[in-house]
């Protein structure tokens, strides 16, 4: 059934028990993103150690309101990027964005996206793509405020 394809167990698990939820100090940059279609919003903070593109993502914290897709996607994001080199985190961000814009035609690389591949089914529903990308856009935007080499997407 289509609904189960979209709402994978991983997504529902993250929605019910989100990882790293809440806003924490210290942080290097914060980004506020909103989905004007539905009013969902997320505030996301990043804490980096090291400088420039050699940095490592030490923490990502967030708060906001949104549907299961946006909440779960932000939770999965933190699993994928926290403790990783910034370059790797940005590669994952690019891969996730590519998958979500692929209308379900992009074959995701599980080595890169890990639990993020659970959102492949969401990509078939254009109205929900923005939900899945909300936290990821906030992450890229926050990083771009700290690291000059990273442009806001």
């Amino acid at each position: 059934m289509q609904l189960e394809q979209m709402y994978q167990e991983i997504i529902l698990d993250h929605y019910r028990n989100p990882h790293r939820h809440g806003l924490r100090d210290p942080f290097d940059a914060e980004s506020f993103q909103v989905n004007p279609v539905c009013g969902d919003e997320v505030t996301l903070r990043v804490r980096l150690t090291g400088t420039g593109t050699e940095a490592t993502v030490e923490d990502v914290s967030y708060a906001g309101q949104g549907c299961s897709i946006s909440q779960a996607s932000t939770s999965v994001l933190t699993d994928l990027v926290v403790g990783r080199p910034l370059q790797e985190a940005l590669t994952k961000q690019a891969a996730f964005s590519e998958m979500m814009h692929g209308r379900g035609q992009v074959d995701p690389d599980e080595d890169v996206l890990e639990d993020g591949i659970a959102f492949a089914g969401v990509a078939k529903y254009p109205a929900r793509v923005k939900c899945a990308l909300l936290g990821w856009m906030a992450f890229r935007d926050a990083v771009s405020r700290v690291v000059d080499e990273v442009g806001a997407s």
Partner: peptide, 21 residues
């Protein structure tokens, strides 16, 4: 149930309602 999620289930049942603000 967030309205967006509710509308997705409604849609899966053929019920086309609007969601959002």
């Amino acid at each position: 149930v967030h309205p967006h999620d509710a509308a997705q289930v409604l849609d899966s049942q053929g019920v086309e309602a609007r969601v959002g603000h």
